[in-house]
């Protein structure tokens, strides 16, 4: 954790806008501990009633896939069309499927 002149460590903020919705990445804040990170996130990302629940996580604790792996990781899914309902033919007249 870098503390040279300190702007305090970086945290990523996830906000749930209402119950039932997923938490979505809203941005980041600087804070020295979790309580401060939560409060800073509240003051910065929910000023207009955007939230009902907040998650914060130290940015350095997030693992991210590498862009150069994009093809290897995600292209194989492109030709698995049988995973989508539109792949299948249903006889005309059959409903509710």
């Amino acid at each position: 954790m870098s503390t040279k002149d300190n702007q305090l460590p970086l945290w990523e903020v996830f906000i749930q806008s209402k119950s039932g919705n997923p938490h979505k990445h809203a941005g980041s804040v600087h804070a020295s501990d979790k309580n401060m990170a939560l409060q800073n996130a509240r003051d910065i990302y929910t000023r207009r009633g955007e939230g009902r629940s907040i998650w914060v996580v130290l940015s350095e604790n997030i693992a991210a896939s590498a862009p150069e792996d994009e093809a290897e990781l995600f292209d194989p899914a492109d030709d698995k069309v049988y995973r989508h309902p539109t792949f299948y033919r249903v006889p005309e007249g059959v409903k509710n499927m």
Binding site: T3, D5, N6, Q7, L8, A31, S32, D33, M36
Partner: peptide, 9 residues
């Protein structure tokens, strides 16, 4: 203040 916050953490 920032130093104190870091020291506390």
């Amino acid at each position: 203040v920032r130093e104190a916050a870091m020291a506390f953490a």
